[in-house]
Design a protein around this nucleic acid. Structure first.
Lengths: 99, 99
DNA sequence: ACAGGTATCTTGTGTCACAAGGTATAGGGC
DNA sequence: GCCCTATACCTTGTGACACAAGATACCTGT
């Protein structure tokens, strides 16, 4: 979901997303690349993102991912589901418990 | 965390907790017993809960779990961590993204 | 030359949620 | 008496996944 969201801001490549996750979360969500790339593959398999290799004059080529329309739908759905989940947990957590 | 919280309301047994999860969440978190019991074992191994077998005049005996002081500390810590996590996700989710 | 940052990918490990199956007791319907 | 359902506990196997570690390759600064 977070990956899809970051891509909704525009085409990005893996390393960039990883850096953004780390900086935006102030170092609390340092997702390693060994975790990141498999997630991209899953999203691609679902048809939610589309990769494009962009060679550069200098440096190794970058694989940019673009969010598809399907992906945007999936993102909205995922966010709704996430918020519902959080609400549910909070309802159990605040329901009658003392501590 | 949810298990610990439910036990913080008083000694409970497995089947009871599963039912409460389902009813409180209005059927959205139906955790099966094949999931539940292993969780109890993990909590017990950490010293956060303590089981007591209570035989009944009728029916199979029930295994009640009680939250320890250690468990109460762990619960508070887990809730704090959970809220921090949710805040972090929300920060990424609302930070500059259009949809 | 070499160290460190950029950039992608693969493999192996351990954890865990869940489904499915097993055991046992009790009550209700036929 | 017999089956079905509900209660109540437990175990095993499967599949998914997060993560660490390692591999490859290019570029920059010292």
């Amino acid at each position: 979901m977070l990956l899809l969201h970051l891509l909704s801001e525009g085409e990005k490549y893996g390393y960039e997303v990883a850096s953004e996750m780390a900086s935006r979360s102030e170092g609390r969500y340092e997702v390693g690349d060994g975790t990141l790339y498999p997630v991209f593959y899953r999203l691609e398999k679902e048809g939610w993102v589309e990769p494009t290799w962009r060679p550069r004059e200098r440096g190794v080529p970058r694989k940019y991912y673009r969010l598809t329309d399907e992906g945007r739908r999936a993102l909205n759905e995922a966010v709704t589901e996430w918020r519902s989940f959080v609400d549910g947990v909070e309802r159990i957590l605040t329901g009658g418990g003392e501590s």
